[in-house]
């Protein structure tokens, strides 16, 4: 039987339990059924995204070209130089995650090719953790595809309740959700059970409620680019806690309810309109005046 009505994490958990299969399997069977494709066709689409993510990392690591505005674009190079001289205290995987996230995010703002996952502004988070962890733990491609499916399924279920757009629900719904998707993907890559995977999602999401979207000059640059490596690492913290069976006291579906409510209560001035927060600091206004030559 194909379970196609999966609109909450509880339903997802139960579908996995009843069929005794992993999250990615339930998700890919459902997707194939609803889109009238074979499961292999679905996995091929996912592989195309995975390949494009890897290409964006490779290209981004080699570039220091600035964005159209000239405000960002050379930080990944700085970070790589630092790690070449002195290794990160948290080790090699941390170095990869942070540089890959910056590489992708900077590639995005210089009009390079990226995967909007779930959005362009948050495009560095999911790829950085999946690629870095897979490299360092010798994880085969098929499992990487499974991990990306899990990330997508997490994002899909959240998007049933909350539109994944800064203008609607703030950055908690863009980079925040990307971090939650990443936590689910990495918990899977490191051998987590269905319960642990969903718990990693819950822990990552819970800790990012209220994150606003206040981009300087209305561009996907400040604070978006640097937020990507931060929230990629944030996902790993959630995974480590979840794999230790530290449980979120608030169930995941209720956290998504809180995400939705917080998004609604958040002032419109802090939802991608650049009318408050970082976007209206003295320095931001000066940058705006310079850029738009008012």
């Amino acid at each position: 039987m194909i379970e196609k009505d999966i609109n909450s994490f509880e339903q997802l958990f139960n579908a996995c339990k009843i069929a005794n299969v992993a999250i990615y399997k339930v998700a890919q069977t459902r997707e194939a059924y609803l889109s009238e494709k074979t499961e292999d066709e679905v996995r091929n689409i996912v592989k195309r995204s995975l390949d494009a993510m890897k290409e964006a990392v490779r290209t981004g690591l080699k570039s220091n070209e600035l964005s159209l505005s000239g405000m960002c674009g050379a930080d990944c190079e700085r970070l790589q130089k630092r790690f070449a001289k002195k290794h990160a205290v948290f080790g090699k995987t941390f170095e990869k995650i942070t540089t890959y996230a910056l590489a992708t995010s900077e590639e995005n703002l210089r009009m390079g090719k990226i995967v909007a996952c779930p959005t362009a502004g948050s495009c560095g988070i999911v790829p950085s953790v999946i690629i870095a962890v897979s490299e360092d733990f010798d994880i085969p491609e098929e499992k990487q595809i499974n991990a990306l499916i899990i990330a997508g399924e997490v994002g899909r279920i959240i998007s049933n309740k909350v539109s994944l757009a800064g203008a609607v629900a703030g950055c908690q719904a863009e980079c925040g959700v990307a971090s939650a998707m990443s936590a689910g993907a990495v918990a899977y890559l490191l051998g987590g059970s269905t319960r642990q995977i969903l718990n990693a999602v819950a822990l990552a999401m819970k800790n990012l409620l209220g994150l606003t979207c206040d981009p300087v000059c209305g561009l996907v640059e400040i604070p978006c680019v640097k937020r990507n490596p931060f929230l990629a690492v944030h996902a790993i913290t959630a995974v480590e806690l979840a794999l230790a069976d530290i449980e979120s006291k608030i169930p995941l579906d209720e956290i998504i309810d809180a995400l939705e409510q917080t998004g609604k209560l958040m002032s419109p001035t802090l939802k991608e309109s650049s009318q408050a927060g970082l976007a209206k600091t003295k320095t931001a206004i000066a940058l705006e005046n310079k850029l738009f030559k008012k």
Partner: peptide, 17 residues
């Protein structure tokens, strides 16, 4: 009936969807 493919695509040129 939403699709998880929509969440992990499109492959696009940045910076804004």
């Amino acid at each position: 009936q939403t699709s998880f493919i929509d969440i992990i695509t499109p492959i696009m040129v940045g910076p804004s969807s």
